[in-house]
Write a protein that binds this DNA or RNA. Structure first.
Lengths: 357, 357
DNA sequence: CTGAAAGCGCTTACAG
DNA sequence: CTGAAAGCGCTTACAG
């Protein structure tokens, strides 16, 4: 795949297989300008004559020069790392978010590094702080619930580190936010269930430490209210956004005398737990129990019956978060906020309630 | 969380919130040694007197000095990045692999960066090569099927870049391998099904471009042979390690006149596709059809009935791969190969076949 | 609009 | 075992 002769000679020159690398000095010499001028071209400084720029760019292209990220990082006092700091327990969410960010970063100078954290770890903020102090990343992207931690956001501002928060409510200036309208999505779930004729409707929400749990709960409540339906305490359970906690909460809900005919779970993981609880209780889905989830993870469409859920375009959100962050870093002027409204995806886990009572 | 007075003074000195950072020069001055000696301590050089080392280490600790990764990278001509280059389509596999690697990297000087690739992209090897040339990572970790690409391995050797290949057969020197005995796992699946009394047993295997697909197929065949059972062509289908292709392959298998009574799928994703095909065909699992998967992803235990599958400890494999890589990088002498043998996890998707025929 | 000097915080190569 | 000098490949601060 490579010129054999030149490869041989390179090997002779550098036995470790390290090919001679074109540097800014080579380009400066060849283009007959100072290295500072090459630097200006690399960094898109306006202080370069068009003629000079074109010439330098031609030389750069001809020699396949790519500035060394490590050297730039040292001189800039800032690395070309973008950090995803997350604590979302759903692997689907995480992978899609990563893919979205990588979509945007591909072709840029930045690399994605991962910082999974545990908000129950008392040192979790310290871990983020140390990472930022040591590696001085270009910026951080924080999905819920890390995004909801004001202390972390303030710390990043003090450290002069850019960031984007993905969250279900406005908790920062627009240019630093990717907003999701979770409440509206939950309201759609409520309208769907109420519209089918359900009246005894329950809700399993995520941990109270997640703002999204509140938003979804309140949105769901508002949606029900449009149909003059209430969401009493007896019909609510808190769970941990995981399968196991979803099973437990649903077990509990279905053990009562007046069972709900429909359950809206705060995410798909818990909704899938509701399937398991329903089976244990001898209930058919959707005949005896309608189930709605939130997220539309791939698993939703693989369940039987397929899960009706509220879709949030995670990957596209990741793309947009990275785009916004890159804009902040480069100081681009057009910094508007972006907002994603979820949509309900009706599948087979919801139906009219059986006439009972 | 921090000494208030010192934080204030730092803010006054550096308005951008950039706190003065302790460098190797500060430590050298305070410890009254040359910076080269500090460097030796940092890098665990044996050429330091114990007295000197202890003293320098005390000063380092006292001042919370952490060497700048960017500066070290520039001087070393090698960055403190570990790259995961993967093309595995299962999000569960990817997330668990990442978590395992991060377990090991946590506390080290290295950061994990992601390089998802598409082996159908004609430029995919070029993408890896360019990443390595530009970022000079400490090393790469490659799970299947990227690990099975000899061209990539040779390229990395030429570039002098360390790597670890996770694969189901010995394709490199032991110190560069994390081996999995996929064939043995598949043989266990075969023994389990044959032991239950199945005779018409089918296999949906992954893409032929994955060596693991071959290993699992051959292991399964050998396991059946122990029970004098054959695996005829009519009972084999190729699919893409994804849910959708799994559904298709199973549809096809179940459309024939002599339906299999059991199907072993090459991974869980496809096995879950078999559930869907079985339902479409009006078959009950496990009464009419036994199903076995491979991987034991979290979804396996969430299916109904729960999926019998072959478990590979992905996260532990990730940990071990990162450990081996760090050993290679530091030139540690004890470099043995590690090997993981999968185990069958019997759940509820397998049972004795109904007496028919 | 362009450049020469100094510096980012480390390590390598050499000397002792 | 220890250190002074030069260098890694860029950018900042300053001058013109």
């Amino acid at each position: 795949m490579k010129n054999h002769a030149s490869e041989m000679s390179a090997v002779v020159e550098r036995p470790m297989g390290e090919r001679t690398r074109v540097t800014i000095n080579d380009i400066a010499r060849i283009a007959n300008v100072s290295k500072k001028t090459v630097s200006r071209v690399i960094n898109n400084s306006p202080l370069v004559r068009d003629n000079t720029r074109n010439h330098v760019e031609a030389v750069i292209k001809q020699h396949g020069f790519v500035p060394d990220p490590q050297a730039r990082a040292l001189a800039f006092r800032r690395s070309f790392l973008i950090c995803l700091a997350y604590d979302n327990p759903s692997p689907q969410y995480v992978v899609n978010m990563q893919l979205g960010i990588l979509d945007t970063l591909d072709g840029s100078d930045y690399q994605l590094v991962l910082q999974p954290v545990d908000r129950n770890d008392p040192d979790y903020q310290g871990r983020i702080q140390r990472f930022v102090e040591r590696h001085r990343p270009g910026g951080l992207i924080m999905p819920p619930s890390v995004s909801e931690d004001e202390y972390v956001a303030e710390m990043l501002q003090k450290l002069g580190c850019d960031y984007i928060r993905i969250a279900s409510l406005d908790i920062d200036e627009p240019a630093r936010m990717v907003r999701t309208r979770d409440a509206e999505g939950a309201a759609q779930a409520a309208r769907h269930l109420a519209g089918l004729g359900h009246e005894r409707i329950a809700h399993i929400h995520g941990p109270r430490s997640f703002r999204s749990a509140h938003e979804r709960m309140e949105g769901f409540r508002r949606g029900l209210a449009e149909f003059d339906l209430a969401l009493p305490e007896a019909m609510m359970r808190e769970a941990g956004y995981t399968f196991d906690t979803g099973v437990q909460a649903a077990d509990n809900l279905l053990a009562g005398a007046r069972r709900p005919t429909a359950i809206f779970a705060g995410n798909d993981e818990m909704a899938i737990g509701v399937y398991a609880a329903a089976r244990k209780a001898g209930m058919q889905v959707p005949e005896d129990l309608s189930i709605v989830g939130f997220d539309d993870t791939p698993m939703a469409a693989r369940m039987w019956p397929q899960l009706t859920t509220v879709r949030l375009p995670i990957r596209e959100m990741g793309r947009e978060a990275a785009r916004s962050l890159l804009r902040k870093i480069t100081g681009s002027p057009l910094q508007m906020s972006s907002c994603f409204t979820p949509d309900i995806v009706v599948r087979q886990s919801t139906a009219r309630p059986l006439m009972s009572d």
